[in-house]
Design a protein around this nucleic acid. Structure first.
Lengths: 153, 153
DNA sequence: CTAGGTGCAAAAGGTTTGCGGTTAA
DNA sequence: TTAACCGCAAACCTTTTGCACCTAG
């Protein structure tokens, strides 16, 4: 677990809004940048605690809310599961493996034809796409043995 | 508020699974079929209560869960807002107006080119698309007066 | 008759909030 | 110095659950 060489845009993004650069916020942000998976607030809390034992869950929630509000991180919602957080700011979708529960980013292709029929006058500012299915590993497991269903968590 | 002329597929869909056709379930289903908006469990409860004052919220949750489990209705998730329910069984996406909070169904076009790049081996079984933006009314309100922001609910 | 469903109240679980003490700027 | 922030605990709100009674089949 090596330290990120630099903290891209953290100082500037936080500073731009007149927000304080507190150690807690830095820690939360580093957790998100370190492993680019999609941890829940609690998972962020647990990881942050390892480096900063005094941090509280409420503070993690506060930091995450602040960062989402400032567009520094994105909140990811899958069904009614706990909110997950994502430091990937590029426009992207998510793939939710119903086998292992893992969530991975998916890129949109360049020619991304937005194939939907919108009533005229509607103005779209954002679109969230979540695919569901089996990842390579879970798909293989499922194929190889009809007895063992993929772990439905 | 007139009674639906018939209850399409309710008896058969419920019966097929060996589930009882209770008055409560029928009532919950009728609420969903009546206005095809996307009510939350609590909203379904309130509407159902008007016709059946003795029904309980827990029962509404139970009925909805049963019906979702049997594919008779769909659960719709937008951010971390309360789960909404939808009787439209066709594959479709949702448009969430950030002005008035209303959720409307959107159809996919025939040629719906799925413009995303998936790691090889991933198997997609389902995709949820949620667009966010302003509906015609809220967009108009926003344009006409720069002072009055659309109701952010 | 009886398995499955209902209604009530209490619990669970994620998230938010009030508040006194702390700290970055 | 001081407004913003932290940490704690309690509150909130949606959803789930345990259990006694009820009812559709």
């Amino acid at each position: 677990m090596k330290k990120s060489p630099s903290i891209p845009s953290y100082e500037s993004a936080m500073g731009r809004e007149g927000l304080r650069l507190t150690p807690q916020r830095r820690q939360v942000y580093e957790v998100l940048m370190d492993k680019r998976d999609h941890p829940t607030a609690t998972e962020v809390f647990i990881r942050a605690q390892k480096k900063m034992p005094s941090i509280s869950l409420a503070t993690v929630y506060n930091c995450l809310e602040t960062m989402v509000g400032n567009g520094l991180v994105k909140a990811v919602h899958v069904d009614r599961e706990p909110t997950r957080f994502c430091a990937n700011l590029m426009e992207h979708g998510h793939f939710h493996c119903t086998g292992c529960g893992h969530i991975s980013d998916i890129e949109f292709s360049q020619t991304h034809d937005k194939g939907w029929k919108l009533p005229s006058g509607f103005l779209v500012t954002q679109h969230d796409l979540t695919l569901r299915g089996l990842c390579t590993d879970c798909g293989a497991t499922f194929k190889n043995s009809n007895n063992s269903q993929p772990t439905t968590k």
